[in-house]
Structure formats: C-alpha cells, structure tokens
Write a protein that binds this DNA or RNA. Sequence first.
DNA 1: TTCAGGTATTCAATATACAGAATATTATTC
DNA 2: GAATAATATTCTGTATATTGAATACCTGAA
Lengths: 270, 270
Amino acid sequence: MTERKQRSPRPDKELAKAVEASKAPAISRAAAVLRLLGKSHAPLGLQAIARELGLVPSTCLYVLRALVAEEFVAFDADTKRYSLEAGVLTLARDWLTRNRFNDLAQPMLDRMSRSFEVTMLGVHIVGLDHIVVVASSQSGNNFQLSTQIGSRFPALISATGRCIAAFGGHSDEELESRFRTLRWDEPPSFDEWRAQVEQTRRQGFAIDAGNYIAGVTVLAAPVWKTRARMSHALVAIGIGGALQRNGLPALQKELAGAARGLSEQLGGVA
Amino acid sequence: MTERKQRSPRPDKELAKAVEASKAPAISRAAAVLRLLGKSHAPLGLQAIARELGLVPSTCLYVLRALVAEEFVAFDADTKRYSLEAGVLTLARDWLTRNRFNDLAQPMLDRMSRSFEVTMLGVHIVGLDHIVVVASSQSGNNFQLSTQIGSRFPALISATGRCIAAFGGHSDEELESRFRTLRWDEPPSFDEWRAQVEQTRRQGFAIDAGNYIAGVTVLAAPVWKTRARMSHALVAIGIGGALQRNGLPALQKELAGAARGLSEQLGGVA
DNA sequence: TTCAGGTATTCAATATACAGAATATTATTC
DNA sequence: GAATAATATTCTGTATATTGAATACCTGAA
C-alpha cells in the first residue's frame, strides 16, 4: 500500500471556492498554506506560496504570520522562508491519545503482523473521498511505522475500497464515478470490481490480489463504530506469494474476527 | 519525563490578545479551537467551545464550519458535537517525513535505548517557551511510541532545560523569570540550578538527578542545526538506581558523541 | 400537550480584514 | 559597486467577516 498521487486538481480553483463559500476564509487559506508546506520538499518564500495558491501576497503574509504565531509554521528570519512547525505534532498526538479505536486496534495489529509476517494497518474512513491510516504495525523493526500514520488514500482503492463500496451505503452512480478516477497497477473492469464488491458483502471481508500494486495482496475487514456506517477498517498487506504459503485462510479468519471484536468493543454491533 | 501540567493561563485572555494583534484573527480562533478540542476528553458542543474560549457563538460556529470543511474537525450531525478529525495526522506525517533530524536521530535513539535500557527522546526546541518531542525509542516493545511524539514541555525543565540555559544564548533575567514558573518534584534553588547550568556548559551535556521527577535521572545533550543556535537535543531517561549500575559514564559519553555527530550531519558544526 | 431553559442557527449593521498600490528590502546581474 | 529585478512589507479605502440580537430548534418537566 505504497502511497500514490491521484489526479491533483488545481489547488487555486478549489481554494477559491472554499474561500468564497466560507464565512471564515482566512481559515481555508491557512489550511491551504499548511497543506502546501506539508507537500513541499523545501521551505518556501512568500511569493512562491501566494503564487501557487492564487493568493494576494499581502493577505498571504498575514496568514503566514498568524500561523507562525500559533506555531504551526516555522519562519526562518535569515532566508525569509516558511515551513511546517512541530506544533502540528501536538494536535496529532492529542488526536491519537483520545481515539479509542487506536488503543483497541494497536495490540491486535501487533499480534497479527507478528504471527503472519505482514504489514497491518488501521484506517479511518473519512468519507467517500479518502481514508487515513491511523495505526500501523509491521513485522520486524522498521522506522516507517510512525511516518506511515497520517497517510491518505482514495476511499475506493484496493481491498479497503471494496469494503467501503460493499458496506458504506453509497449509491451505485456515485461509486461508479469515483471508481473511474482510481489508478491501479492492474485495474479491474468495473464489472469485475462490482462482482468483487458483491463477494465482499457476502463474506464480510475484501481481497485485492495484486490490483492496486502488482504482486501485493491486500485484505481488509470493516469495523463499525455505529451500526449505521462503517467507520474504520483493519488491513493486512503482504507479498502475494508469501501470503499464499503462510496461510491466507487463517489470516482471513483472524482479520475478520478481529474486526468483528473491535466493532463490538466500539459499540457498533450488539 | 512524564508530562506535567504547568500553570495554565486563562485561555480567553491570551486568545483575546492574539486576535487583537493579528490581521487574521480567524486563524488564532481556529488554532484555539483545535487546541481546546485536542485537550478535551469528549466531543464538545458549540456553546461549550465558545464559552470556554470567550468567543461569540456565531463567530465560533463559522470557525467550526470552516475547520470541518478542511477536515481538521469532525462534526457529529446527530449530537451536534465537535472533535478533532484525523486530518491533523496528515500534517504531522508531512512534518515528520520532511525533517532531516528525525531520520538521522531515530537509529541513534533505537541503538542507545536498546544498549542502555533507557527511554530515548529527540526533542525540538521551539523557543524559550517550550520544547516538543519529535522522536522517541524505548527498550522493549511499547505502544506509547507514536503517542509520545508531539508532547510539549516547558523549555527550561529537567536536563534539556539546563542545556537550553547553557547554550541558548538567553539573558540571565529572562532565564530567571522563566525558571520561577517551573514545577519540579524536587526543585533546585536558583543558585544550585545556575551552578548546574555552568557545569553543563563546561562538560557539554546536562544531568537532572531526580529534580524533575523523583527517582528518575535524565541526561540531555545539545544538537546544533546552525552554529548560532541550539535547535534540538537528545535525551536519555532512566530510573536513577538502574542507571548508576548500568554504566552512567558510558551513556554520557555515547549521548554526547551522538549529539555531536548529529550536529555535524545537520551542518551545525564544522 | 404546553412551557421553560437550553441549544444551534440566521440576519442585518458596522468595525475591520483584505486587495491592491506604494514602499522598502534583498538578491542578482553587469 | 551601481543598476536591475526580484522579493518582502507597509499603508489605506472598501468589501465583508464579525457581532449581537432575533429566531428556530431541541430536550426534558409538569
């Protein structure tokens, strides 16, 4: 589940709309600045930021100053360049410590990643638009762990996507239009995909056998915080061949069981 | 280095000042809302948020709507309550992946936490006000790892504080007034502390022997991103008695060496 | 049911955040 | 080092974000 760039819409356009609609446009601008700085590989100057986002330089300056004052943005007085500041970590920490799903899911992820030698993720479903990785565990010791958390993916991609399509309660038209925007290594046809979604609904979990990333098998099972809507998913990721050998059926069973147990603990299932 | 609550100033007052001074007050308000939601143990309603922060409810509503639109805040339409949204994780991830200090420090922290059986932290110095934990490693397998990151501490507390006092280039008056606000388990007198700061300057690293938390010994060594100002520190935390037995001198030497090596790699020392 | 006591939300007047031009500052070129 | 071309920053009038009151919407009590 390596992160991919999906179609990147002109940021100016979207931002302009958000600013127009909002009664607090400064906040939309601030968010856009933060995301731009997050994506940027190097600190940026005022002009570069303003140009990229289609903002008036003076307005952009005020936004930046406010963000610096709030310690979300770092300002290098020598180079006059802006970058993300560590303050954003504090919010993330607050979110992590207050989220019950994480506490409950982490030990499950750790156990399964060890016994099946796969990468395990806990993902949070934000909407039909995308999902966010909120917990992760990998066999062996690797460093990517903490930076994996926070990654975003299109909602309908891979095995998780089939779960969301199966259990999310979204209309067929919406699903299809979203499906058309996805990028896969080995794209399934829409009909194939629909059949797989149907199968997911029947068996209670989803499999992506090398579609999203060639040679990589992904399993996902839904977690329900409320009975109404699937809120999270547990995900297992492994090299296709190795998984076949290491007991795919056992992993399926355990993943589905863990997801069901989590749902119960979160109150989503009686 | 368990987190402590330092004096908590009336949030309304500070926020009011920030709003007054800024040319983008909505951003200060948004930041205050995010921090409040981060601290809150349960989702909050509009009135509760507005009251706590001293905001006009209608204004607060617009702020919240903007934050929801930007996916930093989650809104439960049934209960009309607001909480932090997973979007904040994405910014944190961006920050982590773009920060050279983390990549370089993490393996060092891992190695030292293993060989000395201590908790190791990498901290980022925001200013004279506070520091933020940006990397951590503990002996054995622990879950707190990812949630430890993002914790904030007063700048002058414990061993790190003595480093900042010794190498930060701050005036004596400022140091003293800041020092007076700190809370310790076993507070040193200002004179004792000054002597320890002086010793820190001579030996290149700092020791807190049970002052901050009784029975816990903390070591810290400065890391320089530029020659001008100390930007980070490496920190080792262990039970006092165990550390004495497990070779405190060796740990001191290794910590100081690692910090020096990091500084060189970051370009802060020739 | 009707009524409080609380919530969230809309709305219209106005204080002010913002756009754009003017100025200062820094970087680059000759 | 002077001239040029960028950049960042200040300044000011006006469109508009913010306010405080008015309204709509809940939730429990009698």
